[in-house]
Amino acid sequence: MTKSAFESYEKVYWAKSKPIGFVFSFCSLMGLAVGATMVYQLLHMDVTFHLPAYALLMSIGYQRQRLEMIVFTEGLILSCLGFPLAWLVGAFLCGLVVSYTSLPMILSPQMVVTTFLLILFMCSTSAMLAMGKIKDADPADLFQ
């Protein structure tokens, strides 16, 4: 058995045959779901708070798609602003685990890029769900 084949065997063994592998994967998925929910809540609240402003923009001729793009852009900005901080905290925690347990944990560039893409996916999905709230903005309500 070559060294790389042994490494692959070990990874599969720990990821699929041991409970720790399942727990780790489950926690990652939970993190993604909780993150998506939080971003959705944040954007939903933001849209709700600004509904009169969206209604006003619709009354002066802004198309609904343009307003939806504003929410989508907010989601992308959130992901871009949140990622550097998450990366720093992740790298710090990773270093902490390495120093306490001597486990060979490496935050590779590939993992960093994958994580960023997952965050982008998470935030854009949440933003698309939050966009639905814009339909509640009725410019006729401004004539009250």
Partner: peptide
Amino acid sequence: RTKIGMIFQSHH
């Protein structure tokens, strides 16, 4: 609506 100016009771 882009050809109509709208003014409301509240300034908004």
